[in-house]
Simulated assay, not measured.
Amino acid sequence: MAFENLSPVSDSVIAHAALLNEQSLASVIKVHSRQGGLPEMENLNITIIGVRESRGAVDSIESTLDFTAIRKALYALFPGNWHTKIGDLGDLEPGESSLDTFYALKEIITQLVKNNIIPLILGGSQDLTYALYRAFDGLDQMVNLVNVDGHFDLGNSSLPITNKSYVGRIIVDQPYNLFNYSNIGYQTYYNSQEEIDLMEKLYFDSFRLGSLTSELSAVEPVMRDADIVSLDLSSIQSEVLGYMHPHNVNGFNGREICAIARYAGLSDRVSVFGIFEYNLQKYNDTGASLIAQLLWYFIEGVNFRINERLQDRDVNFLHYSVPVDDELLSFYKSTVSERWWIEIPFMKGVNNKLKRNTLLPCTEDDYINACNQEIPERWYKAKRKNEV
């Protein structure tokens, strides 16, 4: 049974929840308690799971993780006009080795995704993302991974997996399910030139912190194409998190990171969302409050999903053909959401990763730039990956 390794939410959290306003999330979330056991899965759309594993951290995180402060802060918030059913399944305890934890987490995520339940993972070291990715092995699909992080985390894939090398392991380990990796908010001085060159060579997407803070809406189409979103808390300014990661003087501020979490929730495709590198500090209510709000904004986004049927392109979509050099680019605009997509053509006779013409999320600016004879960079990279 995939969920047998989950321990219930602590009695102190449940006692705290009983004292909260009856309209708060405490009265909405179905909680895995010692007395009541696990909630009924078929009644849930979103589940929260803590993973008390941090052995993959290069810069050591406290070995014992406790998500009590986050839960107390989250339960005290008020829901919006939401229709989703939320469950808190408690915590996954560390296995005998980190690989044992990976396996248990993989089994849980696979089960939830198969049942169209979105897991929200709270974790220690970010190498747990590897387990989220491996959960898709049996789901017969290519995977797009988005990492909100100042680092690319490519590392040395020939060494044991860590929170600085898990992306490299995702790239080289079989089975090869990764179609695209996107980094949101990288900071150049945290990444070697070798890693930067490798990102370009593999046609992966990367967005510098400085460019996004002036145009945060560029995150939306990237999230719209993601299956897994992994958020490293060290991508946030240290003062905003109550100096949980004191050396990260630059990063996203509180409003920006909450907007990014909401973009992830709004994506019709995102099926796993993880928040990692939680470093327990005794009196860090600031960090716990911000993480609770990240969860809130993701759930808010899920409640406003449109679930547009891209297969029915003749309905509720406008089609624009734009000749650029030797290419004829096809853009589609939804008349419902006013979001844009660009078509990546399927190339017959090429052993590619796409089985049909695929729509890649884009922005209206991409369309305007194409009209000015500029090919969108993300379209070019996706097309090149398709040809490999």
Rank of each mutant, 00 (worst) to 15 (best):
G254Q: 08
W341K: 01
I196T: 10
S97G: 10
S330V: 04
F207L: 15
I228S: 07
I118E: 01
M142E: 13
A69D: 14
G242T: 02
R339E: 10
M142G: 10
I368V: 15
R305F: 00
S33D: 06
H16D: 12
I228F: 08
E42D: 14
K355E: 13
L99K: 12
D91H: 08
Y380T: 14
L19F: 09
Q187C: 06
I49R: 06
Y332L: 06
V249H: 13
N303M: 04
E62W: 07
Y320D: 04
R34N: 12
F78A: 11
Y186T: 02
E40H: 11
I299L: 05
N248T: 12
M1A: 14
S7D: 12
S289H: 10
S235Y: 02
K353S: 10
I375P: 00
N284E: 03
Y203K: 11
I61K: 12
D325E: 13
R208M: 12
M41P: 01
I184W: 07
A226L: 04
I291W: 08
N183Q: 08
M223P: 07
G150P: 09
L216D: 02
H247F: 12
E195R: 07
T363P: 04
T84Y: 09
N144D: 14
S206R: 15
E343I: 00
K353Q: 11
A17E: 10
K106V: 03
A288R: 06
L178I: 12
L294G: 05
A73D: 06
R384Q: 14
A15V: 11
S7K: 15
N369A: 15
V148E: 07
I257Q: 02
L266P: 01
V31M: 11
D365V: 10
L178W: 01
R71I: 03
S330T: 06
V148L: 08
D285R: 13
E374N: 14
F136T: 11
V229Y: 08
V167S: 01
Y297L: 07
L105W: 08
F67V: 02
E377K: 13
Q187R: 10
S182I: 03
N177D: 06
S192R: 07
K85W: 00
S214G: 05
R269F: 01
K355N: 13
F67W: 05
C371I: 11
N369K: 15
L159N: 05
D173G: 03
N357R: 08
M1F: 11
F3K: 03
Q293G: 09
C362S: 04
I375W: 05
D314P: 00
V51D: 05
F136V: 08
L159D: 09
F207C: 07
E308M: 03
K348S: 13
L328A: 06
S60M: 10
D225T: 01
R255S: 14
Y283S: 13
R339Y: 06
D11I: 12
K355F: 13
L198T: 10
D59T: 12
Y181V: 04
E195K: 09
